[in-house]
Write a protein that binds this DNA or RNA. Sequence first.
DNA 1: GCGCACGCCGAACGATCGTGCTATTTTCGT
DNA 2: ACGAAAATAGCACGATCGTTCGGCGTGCGC
Lengths: 193, 193
Amino acid sequence: MSKGEETRKQVLEAAVEVAASSGLASLTIGSLAERTGMSKSGLFAHFKSKETLQVQVLEFAGEAFIQDVVRPAVSAPRGEKRVLTLFESWLATARDGTAECLFVSAAWEYDDQPGAVRDRLVRMHLDFRDSVAQMFRTGIAEGFFAADADPEQFAHDLHGIMLIYFQAHRLLGDARAEERARRAFSRLIESNR
Amino acid sequence: MSKGEETRKQVLEAAVEVAASSGLASLTIGSLAERTGMSKSGLFAHFKSKETLQVQVLEFAGEAFIQDVVRPAVSAPRGEKRVLTLFESWLATARDGTAECLFVSAAWEYDDQPGAVRDRLVRMHLDFRDSVAQMFRTGIAEGFFAADADPEQFAHDLHGIMLIYFQAHRLLGDARAEERARRAFSRLIESNR
DNA sequence: GCGCACGCCGAACGATCGTGCTATTTTCGT
DNA sequence: ACGAAAATAGCACGATCGTTCGGCGTGCGC
């Protein structure tokens, strides 16, 4: 890996942390430069614009999210076990990770602001939703879930469970958030069996 | 109503709109002044600081949210009808309104940023959650829902349904979002009956 | 090991940020 | 109607924003 590529990744790593707690829009070149010990212009040279930086941060976090959430699931046995693994790894990532935090906050920061960042964000959400639906669909084919269950609806509902868990956990500091998430998930699985 | 109070409300009205689409943190005195036809300093004088402005925006939107969502519910018959009315008015507000949009985005903007804004936001969320739980609890007492159903869990789950509806509707532009929300709600009610 | 591209820096730019001051105008109780 | 009080404007401040440019040093292909 060339020198430039290496520092670029270091910058993105720091940027994901900052963006996860302060929001993607409030990423500033200056604070990011200070945090990484670089000069503003030196850092800026790696990304031609702030928007490019934001998109790259999104992609960087996206890869981490796939590693942490999707990969454990797809390497689990097809069917119910896979969906359960998805839920558990997603929950763990939402509890401790930074990537999920970034996506969730960015989703509402950019839901009304057209541009490259929003476009990228929408595509990632749609891709992930399709992945979840596909895992569930496989579960139907294997006979774990009801034949007339709706995979898109399942992906939708599961995402809702994660969103409210995330809010209860991060904003409200609700100690019972995880318990509630598990209960909601159990009922979702049950009603699709 | 005194002159000052009147312009203050006009400013807050504009501020809610801006904050709903750009986020509460990116509210700027300058753009707000231009939007309302005032001078920066003239506008600023109404709020001693930007943080005060943000808190007041939050409270202003909170009153609107209560008017649009909670009030229709509490004026509906106790029990299942009330919970259903809550869902419908909440859904309508989430679809078209600005207040809900503000709360949702603010929830993630400030989930990691201590201060008066976050404190106020947390309190509003807790208050609302309690209101929802109480409506459900009344429904239990009236025999509409299962005696062993969990009101807090219901409020939690319902909020999750709204969050994912909001994301599907605003970010993804999913035309079937509302249909999915209704289906999820029906199943939530069913499993608590 | 030479040469050049690339990484990085310092300085500067116009703009805008939040927030003070000081006037000036407008409102409002008496 | 007058005077106090409130509302608003004008101006300026230091800071920080994203971005550009010219130069310096160093890593990397030949």
